[in-house]
Simulated scan of single mutants.
Amino acid sequence: MHSLFGERLRQDVPLANYTAARVGGKGDFMLIAQSAEELETSVRHLWNLEIPFVILGSGANVLISDRGVRGVVILNRAQRFDIHAEQDPPTVWAESGANLGLIARTLAHHGLSGLEWAATIPGTVGGAIYGNAGAHGQDMAGTLILAEILHREYGKENWLCERLEYGYRTSYLKKHPGEAVILSGLLRLSKSTRENVQAQMEAFVAYRKRTQPPGASMGSVFKNPPGDYAGRLIEQAGLKGTRIGGVEVSPIHANFFIAYEGATSSDYWRLICLVRQKVLETFGIHLELEIERIGDWDDESAISLS
């Protein structure tokens, strides 16, 4: 691989530095993709060499094993985006590593509406497309026009939103991991005023500060079950403030688990399993993970996912 990637290829990289929860082991190798073109080239090479890889953006919504990640971690830093305010409707095109919140704040400056809900989301465009990120009753399914996809079998294609088969916090790509990689996305906007967009964003930011805890976390751990909220169920099960090792169920919002100094991914996983088991015993509801686990997990942990 060194002959292909040269100095771009790093070895034994601590991955906790690249995740929102600040936990996880080392990656065998890491490549940083600074553009969609670099991302595409890297992925094609790794597919051709049959070398396993994972793509890491902002590191939100992922739990990396303490044992680390075998193969290659591609750190997606393809962050370019272009605003097309003159179009009808206006749009923004963004590479998959671009920060969604930064784009939303930039659009507000231009008086363009459509991404106010994303102002407080810490993830990337690619992660949002992949997992159908959303907030305040809106999501990527209602915003995305098309995604530029690199498919392992068919090469580079433009997928219209409908082809992604969006559901609540899921998509075709999430259900078929390893089949394709997101290179960029085109998002639909509407014209407004800077004052109106900014006011809506500020309201969302204020709501987040009131209802969500500060500190290192992955974001929402579980999906909301139909007709209910995971946080409410966890709270009603008496689990707010429950702690294992360095990880605690937030006393502010029970669907957020906060990592403190010394926390490990194992702490996270043990707490996740405890919370899910308690909610199942109390309410008969099996909470489905919103976060994804990455890396080298043992057989016992894999079995407990079911």
Rank of each mutant, 00 (worst) to 15 (best):
V205F: 09
E202W: 06
T211E: 03
A216F: 14
S184A: 15
L233P: 00
T193H: 09
N224A: 07
Q198C: 08
L189N: 02
G215C: 03
A216G: 00
A203T: 14
M201G: 04
G227A: 01
D228V: 04
F204L: 14
E179T: 13
L183S: 01
P214S: 15
L189E: 01
S190E: 11
G178Y: 14
T193D: 10
T211F: 04
L233A: 01
L187V: 11
K209Y: 14
Y207P: 00
F204C: 00
R208S: 05
E202A: 06
A203N: 05
A199R: 12
I234H: 05
K223Q: 12
R188H: 10
M201L: 14
T193N: 06
A230N: 00
G215S: 10
Q200F: 00
A206R: 02
L186I: 07
I182W: 11
R188L: 11
A203C: 04
V181F: 05
Y207K: 10
A206C: 04
N196M: 07
Q200G: 00
A199T: 06
S220N: 07
F204P: 00
Q200D: 03
F204K: 08
E195A: 15
L233V: 02
G227E: 02
P213F: 07
R208K: 13
V205Y: 05
I234Q: 09
G219S: 03
P177K: 09
E179Y: 08
R210C: 08
G231A: 07
R188A: 02
V197F: 02
A230H: 04
F222V: 04
K191V: 13
V205H: 08
F222G: 01
A206E: 07
G185L: 11
P213G: 04
R232I: 06
N224H: 12
R210E: 14
I234R: 05
P225S: 14
L189C: 01
L187N: 09
F222Y: 13
A203G: 11
Q212T: 06
P226T: 08
Y229F: 15
T211L: 02
Q198D: 09
P177L: 12
V205A: 07
G185Q: 11
N224S: 09
R210W: 08
M218F: 12
L233G: 03
T193K: 04
P177G: 06
T193S: 15
L233Y: 01
P214T: 12
R208F: 09
P177C: 09
R188F: 04
D228R: 15
L183C: 02
L233Q: 04
A216I: 00
R208D: 05
